[in-house]
Computed example of a mutant assay.
Amino acid sequence: MRFTAFLLCGNWHEAEDVMQSAFLKLYLAGPKLGDRSGLEPYLRQIVVRTFLAERRKVRWRREKLTDAPPEGLSSAAGAEDRLVVWQALTAVPARQRAVLVLRYWHDLSVEDTAAALKCSTGTVKSQSSKGLETLRRRLGPEFDHLRLEV
């Protein structure tokens, strides 16, 4: 979940703040949770909603790209591509970024993503399309080899 928060926020400090808020919300909801089997999807939903709520509260705050790579990257082939894609992801608006992270990082279906975000499947599809277009524009033609498809 911490990495999901990082993908959404773009930096580790904000991701940790989102995670702390999400765990607090999960703790407070704990007594009401009867079925503990769906805890991971529920926590993921809390993380995404907390991220989106923070973005709505502080509209004037914008993320800044840095030259420093995120912590914990492996030296495996393609690490540079992942770093560039992660940095480009910060240029995508918050709602579209949430859809992209759920759909393509967590491999959720359109229906599951819509349920997690409490929106229609059409909204998920349009936000995916717009988010991928923003990523394509940000990455440029040298990243056409990455399969960025709806």
Rank of each mutant, 00 (worst) to 15 (best):
V18H: 05
H145V: 10
V47K: 01
L100Y: 08
S120W: 01
R44I: 08
R103P: 06
L117G: 07
E149K: 14
E63H: 13
A98K: 09
Y42T: 05
S37N: 03
T134Y: 01
K130G: 02
A15R: 02
K130I: 01
L135Q: 01
G140F: 13
A79R: 14
M1Y: 09
W105R: 06
A91F: 13
V92A: 07
L43R: 01
K125F: 03
M19C: 14
K32F: 11
A5I: 01
V85M: 08
T113V: 12
A22G: 06
E142S: 14
Y104E: 07
S129I: 07
L43W: 00
E14Q: 12
M19E: 11
I46Q: 04
L52W: 11
S120Y: 05
G38C: 02
K57M: 10
E71K: 10
A76Y: 00
S109F: 09
K125A: 10
G30R: 04
D17M: 05
L8C: 02
R2Q: 15
L148M: 11
R59I: 10
M1I: 04
L148Y: 06
S120F: 07
V85E: 05
T121G: 09
R49I: 08
R147D: 15
A94D: 06
E80S: 09
P31F: 13
T113S: 14
L135S: 06
F143D: 00
L26M: 13
A115M: 00
P141M: 10
W105H: 14
G30F: 04
R147V: 11
A22C: 04
A22K: 03
R61E: 14
K57T: 11
C119E: 02
L102E: 04
D144R: 07
S128I: 01
L52A: 02
H145G: 06
H13F: 04
Y27E: 11
Y27S: 14
P31Q: 09
L148G: 08
G34N: 04
R62P: 00
L132C: 05
R2D: 09
R138C: 15
R82D: 02
A91S: 11
D67K: 09
H13I: 05
L139V: 08
W60H: 10
A53H: 12
K118S: 13
F6E: 11
Q87P: 07
E149P: 00
T121D: 04
A5E: 03
